[in-house]
Design a binder for these strands. Structure first.
Length: 383
DNA sequence: AATGCGTGGTC
DNA sequence: TGACCAAGCAT
């Protein structure tokens, strides 16, 4: 008997009786599922891309990115052969940029080791970079009709309410229990639809706030609906607070071009382009730091620095205040990078064509440079 | 087990 | 406004 990676109980047993939600859940899904673009394809590659994009990201946000990505890289082969810069460029603005890097890496693996066809089991899928337990189950069940379980944020919430789980949902014992229940539930007809129905229920009815218990298709099986505490489930530990962070960035112009630099492949905004700069202390006077930071980052001397303003940006764990300066370069001198992996002198209008994150976009907007995407965002902010 | 990693929406 | 959160993964 082959050793199992994750230990689960016998899925044919159903001590909690969760399998009784299968029929009403599937029936509800058939009537009420949203019309999403990736529900019109059977292409495992396209489904995989959708799952990668949907990680921690809303459906409405993903749709245009998914369309653009599939247009730019229509197959595993196309993605494997693509320039990583082009992949980043399509991903710009979507966040969690390691997903783009991992997709590209995994596509190369699929071409090199799997003959260009995505593996069709959860176990094999999980060996690919960026595919974890959830995504493996999603692709295996949705694209290949395998009876593979999945547990995501929606499933945690639905199960916690259904089964009346009132302990911390991140505790290992609870996580194991949830995967056991998902494993029990998925066995049978239409595993892909069953999994999607579970998530669809969490996304549209069994929502974090104001759940629609009154019209829920599985209300009769739900512990929290009976007790009346659905909205307080699942129980989660408080997230650690955001730490404050300050930085300066400098617009450095020479012969009509500005200097942009690329961040290293690890850490915050990995692999993305930005204006050269660096972190400063809370007590520092930003303007007094510009010359030192610029010299440390790119080895250039500046004559003076004019403050343009500050932009705020919230990351999951950090709150960044970025103070932006337009600095006058001393004549001569060549770039000596430190901490950055590449640099380029580009026309100001072309800077935002390079893959970048929110702070860069906001800084450029402050400096009067713009591109299609930021122009769209600006119109949205001030209609 | 806990933390780092983006962004945009909601209340 | 701040807090929370959305089809997670890697380390």
């Amino acid at each position: 008997m082959p050793a199992r990676k994750k230990k689960t109980r016998d899925p044919s047993e159903d001590p909690s009786g969760i399998r009784r939600i299968r029929a009403p859940l599937l029936s509800w899904y058939d009537q009420h599922k949203r019309d999403l673009p990736w529900r019109h394809t059977r292409d495992p590659y396209a489904i995989w891309i959708s799952e990668a994009m949907l990680q921690q990201t809303r459906v409405e946000t993903v749709i245009p990115y998914w369309n653009r990505f599939l247009e730019a890289f229509p197959s595993v082969q196309a993605l494997a052969a693509a320039d990583i810069d082009d992949v980043y460029a399509v991903w710009t603005g979507l966040g969690y940029y390691s997903r783009a890097r991992n997709l590209k890496h995994a596509a190369e693996t699929v071409v090199a080791e799997h003959g260009g066809a995505l593996p069709d089991t959860a176990e094999e899928l999980e060996t690919l970079k960026g595919i974890g337990r959830y995504t493996a189950g999603a692709v295996a069940s949705i694209a290949f009709e395998r009876e593979a379980p999945l547990v995501d944020g929606n499933v945690i919430r639905v199960f916690a309410r259904l089964l009346g789980i009132r302990e911390d949902s991140a505790a290992k014992a609870v996580v194991d229990r949830l995967w056991d229940e998902a494993t029990t539930l998925v066995v049978g007809e239409r595993p892909g639809d069953l999994n999607q129905a579970l998530m669809e229920l969490g996304a549209t009815l069994c929502t974090p706030r104001n759940p629609s218990c009154l019209i829920c298709p599985v209300r009769e099986a739900c512990d929290a609906a009976a007790v009346g505490d659905a909205e307080s489930l699942p129980v989660k530990k408080k997230r650690t607070k955001q730490t404050k962070m300050r930085a300066v960035a400098a617009w450095l112009e020479r012969d009509g071009k500005i200097l942009v630099v690329r961040r290293p492949e690890e850490g915050l905004m990995a692999g993305l382009w930005e204006l050269p700069g660096g972190e400063i202390e809370a007590k520092d006077e930003a303007k007094e730091c510009v010359a030192g930071i610029v010299h440390a980052a790119v080895g250039l001397e500046i004559l003076d620095a004019e403050g343009i303003g500050a932009v705020e940006h919230l990351f999951t764990h950090r709150k960044l205040t970025l103070e932006v300066f337009r600095a006058r370069l001393a004549p001569g001198g060549r770039v000596r990078r430190s901490g950055y992996v590449a640099h380029r002198w580009v026309a100001p209008d072309a800077a935002l064509d390079l893959a970048h994150a929110g702070p860069m976009r906001k800084a450029m907007a402050l400096l009067g440079a713009t591109d299609e995407r930021s122009a769209r965002a600006a119109r949205k902010r001030t209609p």
